[in-house]
Write a protein that binds this DNA or RNA. Structure first.
Lengths: 196, 196, 196, 196
DNA sequence: TATGAATGAGGGTTCATTCAT
DNA sequence: CATGAATGAACCCTCATTCAT
């Protein structure tokens, strides 16, 4: 039955890829199940064999894409082994922001829909869980209670500010904004975690 | 005629209040014009005499509610005249967060829909424009280019983190979170504006 | 009370002129009473003081405009006193067609809505009644029973063919069509009225 | 599956028949999609599976009905093989007019909505295309440039005059009108095509 | 006479979901 | 598993008409 299972997985994946493209192009509410099915080359009814509804699929997509972003950033920062803790943190965030600036539709999609809850659910207990990663970089015990708060604040600050800055260049442009953001992030870390 | 104009103002206000309640209860996309009109006790067509569509009304509501929040916070901070700059900033934010915690539906509504653009449009050129207010408190020239960036970051940080913290108590509870937030805000201010 | 009556007539006339412009621009069904009233600078309710509804006004307008066309044509043909009967008939039709080609919106408006009934009602018993006019030109008694039929056929033929020819140049262009039309008209006259 | 396709054809046909009845009874603009669907015993949405909108349906109906008329007339004229060209032309037109007089609602519907453009689109390239038919009858090459003009004029003359004559008996009754019309048609043919 | 705010029936259209095939 | 025709509730919005002022 390998073939059938393959076929099943193929259809599901094609539905996911297709719907992601459509969500980016037209927004979620303006993308219909018909659109997705037609684009994926399956019948409308088939959609319901794999997903409960549009929003079931949406959450899975967001988690998947957030994962990819972080994976990319971590892979890149991996090569900067000689630099200090601060530089590593900034390198990771810098990579993510650059990716988002290159792919503004992805930024729009993620930002409008990402919540801390989905984010944690998607990453925790994986090798991408940001808490232990930051713990390692900042040389702090992973169960330090302030660590999670700091990570939470940094992620929210970055994600909340990135949206307007990248998409609207308001109140300042992306490049003008970066130094202030990075200085602020480091200030938060130093203030709350006391790492030099 | 005074009577007619009164009536018009009343209708508009009733429509706004009604729709705010409905937006909170059911979410914007699930609230229909029919709902709003019926609840407000006017005919469907009457809605269109006052608003272009649902989203016109929505933007006006957000602006209105954000204004109220800030007005409240400023009024309260007014009585703390003896305290220093840092204390005043925190007092204002503290008041806003307390208001939001008391009225979680308002928090949900504002957070889901507030954007820096709408925010600035609603407040700029009014006595509530946050830039000159912060300039006054922090004793910085209102046209200092870094000021707007800092205000932007603080507002985004507060609004982005408040959502999860107040509504989900995740990753920590509101009360546990406050000190970290305030320390971070002050760290940002000191780092970027260099005020003691 | 002359002033008040003047005022009344002024408003009515302004409504007629305005609505004619709007009918030409947007078509009758897409022109609303609101449009007309706004454009004429009166309140919506005022419209109903002068007209029963849109279609009441429409019929009056058509009659009025058809009258103008014919008046223009007759006035022009008046100067061609030396020519024969055939030439006079053609001259009149030629003038009307030229007017319509210059004012295609008028053509559209009249053609879509003109009926023989409205036409006769508008013109009969006036100095523009086509029956006695043609009787004079063709030197036939005005009560010749075949005269009315011939006039009817000619008017319908001209008005029905003009529409497509002028607006769509289909099946041939206006200039290519004219000779055939005029030869046909004369053929009908000669065949049915036996005038040399 | 044959069953499904049959069902589809049935539904489409039922929608067309139903809407034709309704258009006749109430006029097109006063007939709603709801009416049509309800009368046809299908859901409103089903309408949109088969037609883009009311006017898509309308055009198809007109074309269909015009086709039927002509088919009927040609079939009848077929039996008059011994008569000359003039007699054949008149026989065809006579048949069409008789059909229209029997079915005045059809006359109303067609006349109000038929345009040369729709007519040609509906018939050209079919065995009902009037140009080659007349070419055959009148013994003229089908690409004679004057032929199309003459056919155009005849069709417009017949269709424009038929309306008032049949529906209003104005300016004369149907039976009184016929001879004049036929003499005129033949006069046009002889004048413009020079066939004896 | 004149106004214009208010009405509300009704229009066209969309689309998530079902179910017989 | 897969299909896609059929559904019909629900939506937004328009606009002729009324009537209190």
């Amino acid at each position: 039955m390998g073939k059938i299972d393959e076929n099943k997985t193929q259809k599901k994946q094609r539905l996911m890829e297709t719907s992601f493209q459509l969500f980016l192009e037209k927004g979620i509410s303006r993308t219909t199940i018909s659109d997705i099915a037609a684009q994926a080359g399956v019948a409308k009814g088939t959609f319901y064999l794999y997903f409960k509804d549009k929003y079931d699929l949406q959450e899975k997509l967001i988690a998947h894409k957030a994962k990819q972003l972080i994976q990319h950033a971590l892979a890149n920062s991996f090569y900067e082994t000689r630099t200090g803790a601060d530089e590593k943190v900034i390198a990771i965030i810098d990579d993510i922001l650059d990716e988002l600036q290159k792919d503004k539709k992805l930024l729009k999609f993620i930002n409008k829909n990402l919540s801390w809850g989905i984010f944690r659910r998607a990453l925790s207990r994986s090798e991408l869980d940001p808490i232990p990663i930051f713990a390692g970089i900042l040389d702090v015990p992973a169960d330090d209670p302030s660590l999670e708060v700091v990570v939470y604040m940094i992620i929210e600050l970055v994600s909340a500010t990135a949206h307007n800055i990248i998409l609207e260049s308001d109140p300042v442009t992306f490049n003008d904004f970066k130094p202030w953001l990075y200085r602020s992030i480091l200030a938060i870390i130093h203030e709350c975690l006391g790492t030099a």
